[in-house]
Nucleic acid binder design. Structure first.
Lengths: 204, 204
DNA sequence: CGCCGTGTTGACCAGTTTCAAGATTGGTGG
DNA sequence: CCACCAATCTTGAAACTGGTCAACACGGCG
């Protein structure tokens, strides 16, 4: 992408806020390393994580009138930022690039639809199985290959509309039935991807 | 909008399918009259309604690679359709219009975020109170003014991630506490908008 | 007038949450 | 390098919200 040549690097520490919902949106970002969460808060503190971002992901490039979401660093994070006006100008001038951006938006929208179905109509087991599969895919891990879960149990819970306890219980159940292994808190191995796929569709 | 001058009119009867998830997406549509639901199905029939569309709404204008959702007529529906290529071309040629479309996408994305928070973190009462408020707003009804609920209880349930019984029970509770009145199945009056707003944030 | 689809209500049940008690983990300072 | 402390995670028991099942009401239409 054209942008790759420009941009200033920024660093954020674990749990630091990158921007808040409602802030003026002056920059678009690409994530260089680490994991970012995009979330919404209710006034009483209830939180919903809309999306986790991983290295390579572009975000906040189409927020005309201020950020709709809060962005926070899950672990330590490095990202590049680009003045917003620049992006918009480029998009307007270069139809090719404008289309790329529109396509990215469309992808996002589709991902949100999938998540909506998950939150509205799927069980705890289905949600967690789906999440583990998508994480495994995103991490490019093969069968039996270990991959990192950078986010906390609470983050997972707030992404899937569950409590931290339910997340733990379901993970334990998957571990007991030898579908996954959790050698340490932030790493996971999937032994039986097909079983997980079945659980993602049919629950228990 | 430029499009208003072109387009062919189509009619669909109550519960008829306009297009299915996975279908090639050849047209964009604007709704002339009636209500449309955009939804996703799980293989076992569980359904999540992503969005209701009302007269004036434009939809399916950015689905490059086939429809992501199924569109169905809630009641009888009239809509205009426009060849997809035309829209894309126009958007590419006319930066102004391209921006309008991007802005529409961004609005949709924001609405999905709100819905995600609702499904992930809000109670039955909060969901229904929010829904009634947004419906009242969309219908342009004032305090104490009667407005139409075109969709069935099942549709409401599938939009809010609840069962039809829960929807009924919560509506009854709101009626008993004189916050709303339901003179007939498909009409509703809000007596106390402030109470509803409070319930939308804090539940019960 | 009676039937069928839809809506309402009640009783009971299940999955998830809540509350609470430990167990692990990771970080800090001696 | 180890001990301690705080944060996070795990597990169990009880409570609760919302779901399921079932009976009945309502309303529109032939």
């Amino acid at each position: 992408m054209v942008l790759r040549t420009m941009g200033t690097q920024l660093r954020f520490a674990r749990n630091q806020t990158i921007f808040n919902e409602g802030d003026a949106a002056e920059y678009a970002y690409t994530l260089k390393s680490g994991t970012v969460r995009l979330c919404n808060y209710l006034s009483d503190g209830r939180r919903q994580i809309m999306q986790f971002l991983f290295p390579g992901d572009l975000f906040s490039f189409m927020e005309l009138d201020g950020h709709h979401l809060t962005a926070e660093a899950v672990g330590d994070v490095v990202l590049s930022c680009y003045p917003h006006r620049q992006i918009v100008q480029l998009g307007a001038q270069n139809p090719e690039l404008g289309m790329r951006m529109a396509s990215l938006m469309s992808q996002r929208l589709h991902a949100m639809h999938v998540q909506l179905l998950l939150l509205g109509r799927q069980t705890a087991m289905e949600r967690i199985a789906s999440f583990l599969l998508s994480l495994k895919e995103r991490m490019g891990a093969n069968e039996d290959e270990l991959f990192d879960i950078s986010m906390s149990r609470q983050d997972v819970a707030d992404h899937l509309g569950l409590t931290i306890e339910t997340v733990c219980r379901v993970l334990s159940k998957l571990r007991r039935s030898r579908v996954i292994a959790i050698p340490n808190l932030h790493q996971l191995r999937v032994y039986d991807t097909d079983a997980l796929r079945a659980l993602a569709e049919r629950g228990d």
